[in-house]
């Protein structure tokens, strides 16, 4: 493979465009499922580079982007800027425009933000899966529930395959304009969906509370809420440990009241 440096201008062929789109669609399934971590820029960018015949640019772009994305993750049900689109488009822009890899990273990141917005919309649409799932469960239809999973996976793959093909081959400029228009003129729609993302878990929690909450447990809910509010932390573990303390107090106090506990000292 000839080692070309950053600014070589090239035209992407239809075959390359299709190949990048298909590979992106496959990698996006992994991103969706968080299975093998192929969706990280360190993997996506070199693979894209390889398809475009320039592994070196892919590696450099992957190295840059991986460090940028090291702190961006989907922990706690949030949607981070999209690492796949950012990596693919960084390599594509570095190869097809005069941008250096470093400069292409900034533009590529813009596509990552565009995909983040689109994913927020798609996952909002995924709310529609909950009702059929309940119906399948009521009929003990396991195949139905599994089928819903596959539909979700296929929708995600199509979302990436199509968007990548448009961005990489069919309508690069139009996509860049679209990203800008969306961000400038219709920011409120995207804001609305982000706001909803912060509210909707309340419905899931309310359903759980309906079956779990009894008046005598309310103090514990309040304690967990207060602890988490005043000692914010990046995971729920400290609250859980406090919950374990409460649970143990209850467990052992009840044992004493009944006169002698019936538990195995050695534990689990």
């Amino acid at each position: 493979m000839p080692k070309r440096q950053y600014t070589a201008k090239m035209q992407i062929t239809l075959f390359q465009g299709l190949l990048v789109s298909v590979v992106t669609a496959i990698i996006s399934i992994d991103s969706h499922l968080e299975g093998f971590f192929w969706f990280r820029p360190i993997i996506v960018a070199p693979v894209t580079g390889l398809i475009l015949g320039d592994l070196h640019t892919g590696l450099i772009a992957g190295g840059y982007l991986e460090l940028i994305f090291a702190g961006l993750n989907g922990v706690g049900g949030t949607i981070p800027p999209d690492s796949i689109m950012a990596a693919v488009m960084t390599v594509v822009l570095a190869k097809t425009t005069n941008l250096s890899v470093e400069a292409a990273v900034a533009s590529g990141y813009g596509f990552g933000l565009l995909m983040q917005a689109i994913s927020t919309l798609v996952l909002t649409g995924f709310l529609a899966f909950n009702k059929p799932a309940d119906n399948y469960a009521a009929k003990a239809d396991i195949k139905g529930i599994t089928r819903l999973c596959w539909i979700g996976i296929i929708i995600g793959a199509l979302q990436y395959g199509i968007l990548t093909f448009l961005s990489v081959y069919a309508a690069q400029d139009a996509m860049r304009n679209f990203a800008e228009i969306l961000e400038v003129n219709y920011a409120w729609v995207l804001d609305g969906f982000s706001i909803a993302g912060g509210l909707l878990p309340a419905i899931g929690f309310a359903m759980l509370l309906k079956v779990m909450l009894k008046v005598q447990y309310f103090p514990y809910l309040l304690a967990g809420f207060l602890f988490s509010t005043f000692i914010p932390y990046d995971n729920i573990l400290p609250v859980a440990l406090m919950g374990v303390a409460f649970a143990m107090m209850s467990f052992f106090n009840d044992g004493e009241a009944k006169g002698g506990a019936v538990y195995d000292e050695e534990g689990i």
Binding site: K214, L221, L226, I236
Partner: peptide, 21 residues
Amino acid sequence: KAASILACTILGGLIASYISI
């Protein structure tokens, strides 16, 4: 009972950390 207490404590924490307005 102990598991319900633990679960409710965690739910309280989840409300504070997942829902934002």
